[in-house]
Computed example of a mutant assay.
Amino acid sequence: MDDAQKEKFEAAAFRRLVAHLRERTDVQNIDLMNLAGFCRNCLSNWYREAAEAEGEPISKDKSREVIYGMPYAEWQARYQREASPEQKAAFEENKPQGH
């Protein structure tokens, strides 16, 4: 496999992951963080960092919209729930550096 094919497959996998996360609005970001150590916001940050590394500045709001499929505030209003004390405790115990 050459580099172009590899990048094409990686991009397809990324698009599928984003689509999956858009469909699974029942899964909260804190659940993702507690189980996997990353969430939708992490993906949007990585997307923004990749764009900026290529000389394409993108705002935090725009990169979040790419991942969420809508403005972040709209997603929060529609789908985000208050984290339970158990979720918050698990996050504090396991949170990655920088969160």
Rank of each mutant, 00 (worst) to 15 (best):
K8Q: 15
K95Q: 04
E10I: 12
E93P: 04
I67T: 02
Y72L: 05
E74H: 14
E86R: 12
Q28I: 02
N34L: 00
E92M: 05
W75C: 02
V27R: 02
E74M: 14
A50D: 12
L43D: 00
S44M: 06
A83M: 03
A11T: 14
P85C: 08
Q5N: 13
S63N: 10
A77V: 07
P71D: 07
S44V: 02
Q80W: 10
K8R: 15
A73W: 15
G37E: 01
P71S: 08
L32W: 04
F38W: 11
F9G: 07
S44N: 06
Y72Q: 07
W46Y: 11
E49Y: 11
A51I: 06
K8M: 10
Y79M: 06
I58E: 06
M1L: 14
A90S: 14
M70H: 03
K8Y: 12
N29T: 04
Y72T: 03
R22W: 08
D61W: 12
V27C: 02
A4R: 14
L43Q: 01
K60S: 04
E23Y: 09
G55A: 13
F91L: 01
M1K: 14
L21W: 03
A73P: 07
A36W: 07
D26A: 10
R22H: 05
D61V: 13
V18D: 02
A53P: 10
N29E: 04
S59E: 12
R81C: 07
S84M: 08
M33G: 01
N94T: 01
R24K: 12
K6C: 08
Q80D: 13
A90L: 13
G69T: 04
R15W: 14
K6A: 13
R24E: 09
K95P: 01
M1S: 15
L17G: 03
I58R: 09
Y79W: 14
A4M: 13
G55P: 08
N41I: 01
Q97L: 04
C42D: 00
D3A: 15
K60N: 10
R81V: 07
L17T: 11
R48Y: 01
D2F: 13
E82V: 10
E82M: 11
L17M: 13
L21G: 00
Q87W: 03
D3F: 11
Y79K: 09
L35W: 10
W75S: 01
N29P: 03
R16L: 10
A51H: 14
S84R: 06
F9N: 14
D61R: 15
L17E: 08
D26I: 07
A77M: 10
V27H: 04
F9A: 11
F91T: 00
